[in-house]
């Protein structure tokens, strides 16, 4: 499974999302390849992704995709990430 975290620069916030998503997936016993990318490269970075993690601001720019786009409000709330990833993947 492939998950892509998207932010404006591809550093900073998307990196934090990647790190915390990996922790949540490990807790859930799920294996996935999680990468961080900037929104301008979303077409290639998320071409074969099942899930895109991002902020509300990027949903429009991400546009049409086969991936499930999950909007995260608090990047440090592992419970929010767990609930939303479980809902999407379960």
């Amino acid at each position: 499974m492939k998950i892509v975290a998207i932010c404006g620069a591809g550093i900073g916030s998307s990196s934090i999302l990647k790190v915390n998503a990996e922790r949540v997936l490990a807790n859930l016993g799920l294996e996935a390849d999680v990468t961080a990318a900037d929104v301008s490269s979303v077409r290639t970075a998320a071409a074969d992704a099942q899930v895109i993690l991002t902020s509300a601001e990027f949903v429009e720019a991400i546009g049409k995709t086969f991936a499930d786009v999950i909007v995260i409000e608090n990047y440090f709330d592992l419970q929010e990430l767990t609930d939303k990833l479980e809902k999407s993947l379960g």
């Binding site: 932010c7 404006g8 620069a9 916030s13 934090i16 601001e57 608090n74 990047y75 440090f76 709330d77």
Partner: peptide, 22 residues
């Protein structure tokens, strides 16, 4: 970055992570 992409740098309640690219 914020003007272009919006206030997404506010990644948790009360906290902004301001940054640009290398």
């Amino acid at each position: 970055m914020i003007e272009e992409h919006g206030p997404y740098v506010v990644i948790a309640p009360g906290l902004a992570l301001a940054h640009a690219r290398p």
